[in-house]
Design a protein around this nucleic acid. Structure first.
Lengths: 170, 170
DNA sequence: GTGTGCATGTAAGGAGTTACATGATTGC
DNA sequence: GCAATCATGTAACTCCTTACATGCACAC
């Protein structure tokens, strides 16, 4: 939250939009999480909330305080880490694919390979350009992470393509 | 659940243990999920539950029915897919690393690189051998998935090592 | 003038985890 | 004998999502 505000997302709505276009893949969120959390952070003195109406439509602009910036840095260098969680039906299907006929196995692997391709392409062509807009601003890590994601999915795609061709020649 | 029983885990406890040693990385579960789900599947006729006490300690052995095997195959070839979810504080930290000093950035990247190394090694040396025990039994996908995981983490490790050396020479 | 997007928030529900409760077996 | 593991289940709780409720601004 603090990080998103520091990257330039001022309203709750803008934070959710920014998250959908970037951290969604490794840290998704919803508006019902964003608003109460912003209120808590403002109450705790890590954010300042100012009125910033757009015409007669209410809007609030948040700003990171000194304490907030310090808290963000402290979290970034802390080694405490909630366990990574990854949940993927596709991989689970692959794990259990021995129950399928060879043709269905091939179809499954092909599907996963295409999905990896789509993910890689999406990151490279949709997410990375958005991140690179920030790049001008001395902010390069969002683009780096997008590239890491795109490259990793490309690697998985290639791995699955290899498996696919092995299944075909049997 | 059906898949795990078919792979040879007969009791609820054994299913949980097997999951911890294999699907944990992409489909974790807990005993409080396993037991009610087994009861539901048995009630729905997809599993048969038999008494299988070990001495005077109660135990139940589950078996997949014809309907259960059919339901498993149907799910494996179905294209409906719950969205992949991935949640990782490490990557989130990297995304926001612009807020850190160059030294702290380097320390973070190094930490992530080592974590990727540990994950890759763990999969190759702990998980893969367990999966290969099944391999003899005409069951090869568990080992394939373990290898995919190990290789993908190795790729990420190498990617981060590259980034690390770029940060060092600045 | 109308649909899409901007904007804030609450309430209910679902999915999953941790903690609780209990006890037998097996290996050292 | 004692610790670790096997074994089954329930209750409470937490985190997060979906749905609800409301209304203005802007572009076509």
């Amino acid at each position: 939250m603090l990080g998103m505000v520091q990257l330039g997302a001022r309203s709750g709505y803008a934070i959710k939009k920014a998250a959908d276009a970037s951290t969604r893949f490794f840290w998704s969120t919803s508006l019902a999480q964003v608003y109460p959390e912003l209120a808590r952070l403002a109450e705790g003195g890590l954010l300042i909330r100012r009125n910033d109406p757009n015409g007669s439509r209410e809007r609030y602009a948040y700003e990171v305080t000194e304490d907030g910036a310090e808290a963000l840095r402290a979290w970034l260098i802390s080694t405490h880490e909630a366990p990574t969680q990854f949940r993927d039906e596709g991989v689970l299907r692959l794990f259990l694919a021995d129950a399928l006929t060879p043709e269905d196995q091939l179809a499954l692997v092909r599907r996963l390979r295409r999905r990896a391709h789509a993910a890689s392409t999406h990151m490279r062509e949709e997410i990375l350009p958005l991140a690179e807009v920030l790049h001008a601003n001395d902010t390069r890590y969002p683009a780096l992470v997008a590239r890491l994601g795109a490259d990793t999915y490309a690697y998985a795609e290639q791995w699955l393509a290899q498996l696919e061709s092995e299944l075909e020649t049997q």
